[in-house]
Computed example of a mutant assay.
Amino acid sequence: MRASNHLIGVVNFLTFLLSIPILAGGIWLSSKANSTDCIKFLQWPLIVIGVSLMVVSLAGFAGSCYRNTFLMYLYMWAMFFIIAALIGFVVFAYAVTDKGSGRPVLNRAYLEYNLEDYSGWLERKVSDPGYWAKLSSCIRDSRVCSKMGRTFHGVPETSDMFFSRKLSPIESGCCKPPTDCGYGYVNETLWGPGGGLVGTNSDCARWSNDQRQLCYGCDSCKAGVLASLKHSWRKVSVINIVVLILLVIFYVIAYAALRNNKRMDNDESYGETRMTKSHPTAMHF
């Protein structure tokens, strides 16, 4: 029985360690939201799951050390719901970031992003005018576009240098007009007539050289936000899946050890009962 308690204690300690990458992933997404993505609600379930797992692991560790049956059963039930929540969270994250990717452009190293490539709940939320007003304001305040400028030996980069850059989805979608609009390069966030007709893309009319406007009202900017979010969430989801598999393994081990404890408790109780019946005079000592 002592060995089973030690095993449960080790499993709880390992579970506590597994809560750290989950919590770290949520904090990392929160920092990404503050800098580029600006979608600040999706990381909170991850943070809550990480903190809950950490607290539950400590409770289970205490229960195994002090042989507190109540804490151990509380730990098992709580772990079950945490695993279920993490499964639901991973499925949800993949579902809302499933569709959409950047499109390659001729003679450009960067990709361009189109809102029609995305669909589902997250696309509808980002497209909501009221929500996008807050989201675009956050992107503007992050100054991601104003940080795009580069110089080489004090000389601003040329158009060929810019076209050979691999821009982030936010930079490509929000800080410049779409390529098919036909605007000519002046600098990273300043574009003039390209000598041809402006394209039929509705974002062409939304583009502005006003540094407070740029393409923050464009559908390409919304698509860039979704692409950036998808990239961030896929990184975290890989870690979550690995952690989830390990949690299920640890849960099965802890459950088997707890059943072993219960069986040994029953065997001890049965042995004491038989001893009492075999030696009734022992009750008089």
Rank of each mutant, 00 (worst) to 15 (best):
N68T: 09
N34Q: 15
F41E: 12
A133E: 11
L190R: 10
S164Q: 13
Q211K: 13
V91S: 10
L42C: 05
L258K: 00
G182S: 11
L58I: 15
G60I: 01
N266Q: 13
P280W: 10
V48L: 13
E171L: 07
S127N: 11
S172Q: 06
G192L: 14
T69F: 08
S168Q: 07
R2G: 10
N12P: 01
I139W: 01
S164M: 15
K166E: 14
Y118M: 01
A133S: 14
G195Q: 12
W191I: 09
K262T: 12
M275F: 09
E272N: 14
L58F: 12
C204A: 08
K147A: 15
V126Q: 04
C38S: 13
S136D: 03
R2W: 09
F285M: 12
G26M: 06
D37E: 13
L214G: 00
W121A: 07
L244K: 11
I253N: 04
V11F: 08
R206Q: 04
G194D: 07
N187C: 09
F41S: 15
K235R: 13
V51F: 10
I253S: 11
N201P: 02
G120H: 04
A93T: 09
K166T: 15
G120V: 02
K134S: 10
I49N: 00
M283R: 14
L197R: 13
S142V: 05
A109Y: 04
K222Y: 03
E157A: 14
G199T: 04
I83Q: 04
I241M: 09
V144L: 11
Y113I: 01
L14W: 05
R165S: 06
M76S: 06
Y94K: 08
A133D: 11
A282S: 14
V11T: 07
V248H: 08
F70Q: 11
K176D: 02
C221N: 00
A84Q: 06
A85V: 05
G26C: 12
E157V: 14
V198Y: 03
L53C: 11
M79V: 12
D160S: 12
T273N: 13
W132S: 03
A62I: 14
A62W: 03
L53G: 04
W233K: 01
F250T: 01
W191C: 05
D265F: 09
A109V: 06
W77V: 15
W132D: 01
F61T: 01
Q211I: 10
Y251S: 07
E268T: 11
S101R: 07
V96F: 08
R212L: 07
S30W: 08
L71W: 04
V198N: 02
Y110L: 06
L229N: 04
G192S: 15
C38W: 01
S142K: 08
L247T: 00
A78S: 15
V225F: 01
R143G: 05
V248W: 04
I83V: 14
S168F: 06
L226F: 06
I83G: 03
L246S: 08
Y110W: 11
I253G: 06
I87Y: 05
R124I: 05
Y113K: 01
K277M: 15
P104Q: 14
N240D: 03
N201E: 08
W207V: 01
V198Q: 07
D128N: 15
H153E: 08
Y183E: 04
Y110R: 05
K166H: 11
P45E: 05
